[in-house]
Computed example of a mutant assay.
Amino acid sequence: MFFVRTASERDLQQVRTLLVETWHATYDGIYGAAKVQEITDSWHSPAALKAKLAKKGGEFLVADDGKRIGGMGFAFMAEDMAKTALLRQLYVHPDLQRQGIGRDLFAELESCFPDAEVMRLEVEPKNAAAIAFYEAHGFVEVDRIKNCGVADSGLEAIVMEKPLV
């Protein structure tokens, strides 16, 4: 059984491994293994994860069974959008998907931002499983963008939102 808890610095290597494995399983067929490696080396580097852990107003969670980290989630309050929480990461190891870990992580993240009226996220248009998960949890498409994650990434994304009130 996995329990959701706040991440700590001692979790970051396991979280990085989880993210690299999950990204390759999910996105190699979309972007190619080399591009996925480039993204994970940047977006999921130890320094990037440590910065998320330290982000003021952020919530960095892991699903832990005492032996391994099976999932992770990260969200924070937007600085440029009033009363909006931004869900930036929600990943479950491929071997553990569809067992409720993502649901439990999401439920905890959803409750972490009492001042938020909306939760917003970006998702790859070809990631049908993620889109279905978010739709099942009340998200709807509100926009499409050309640069997911960081400026000039060149990665298209669907922007989805869910009211939290």
Rank of each mutant, 00 (worst) to 15 (best):
G102M: 09
G29W: 10
K162W: 01
L61F: 04
G29C: 06
P46L: 11
E161F: 01
N147Q: 05
A107N: 02
E79C: 00
D41A: 15
G32Y: 00
F113W: 08
I145E: 06
V159T: 09
M81H: 13
I158P: 04
H24Y: 02
A48F: 02
E9K: 09
A25C: 11
K56R: 07
Y134W: 14
A130S: 12
A130V: 08
D95P: 00
V165C: 03
E110L: 14
E141T: 10
G57N: 02
G138Y: 04
A63H: 06
V123N: 02
F3Q: 00
T22L: 03
A33L: 03
F113A: 07
A132R: 14
M119Q: 00
N147H: 15
M1N: 05
L105C: 04
V165N: 08
R88C: 04
A151R: 12
L12Q: 08
G32M: 06
E156V: 08
Y91G: 12
T22E: 03
R5C: 01
I30L: 03
D115S: 12
L90A: 04
E59V: 13
K55H: 13
Q97N: 10
F60S: 03
D80R: 11
T40A: 13
A7N: 04
I158T: 15
V15E: 03
M160K: 05
M81P: 00
H24V: 02
N147D: 11
N147V: 10
E124I: 12
D115F: 05
Q14E: 15
V123T: 12
D64S: 08
I101A: 00
A85L: 13
C148M: 15
T17F: 13
W23N: 02
Q37I: 04
A82Q: 13
D143F: 04
M81N: 06
V15N: 01
M77R: 15
L18N: 05
D115W: 03
Q14W: 05
F139K: 02
L96P: 00
H137M: 04
E108M: 06
E38D: 11
V15K: 00
N147G: 01
I30M: 01
F60A: 01
A129V: 09
L90V: 12
V159Q: 10
L164M: 11
M160L: 13
Y134G: 00
V4Q: 02
F133I: 06
R68D: 12
R120S: 09
P46S: 03
K162M: 07
R68G: 08
G138H: 10
E122A: 15
F106L: 13
D152R: 07
K55E: 07
T22A: 10
G71V: 07
I158S: 09
D41W: 06
K50V: 04
A157K: 11
R98Q: 14
A48P: 03
R120K: 07
K162A: 07
M81G: 00
M119N: 02
Y27P: 02
E161D: 09
E141K: 13
S111K: 11
A75N: 05
T84C: 09
V140Y: 08
A129Q: 13
Q13C: 12
D115Q: 14
S8N: 15
N147P: 03
F113S: 05
A132T: 13
L87Y: 01
A129N: 05
M72A: 09
F3A: 07
I69R: 02
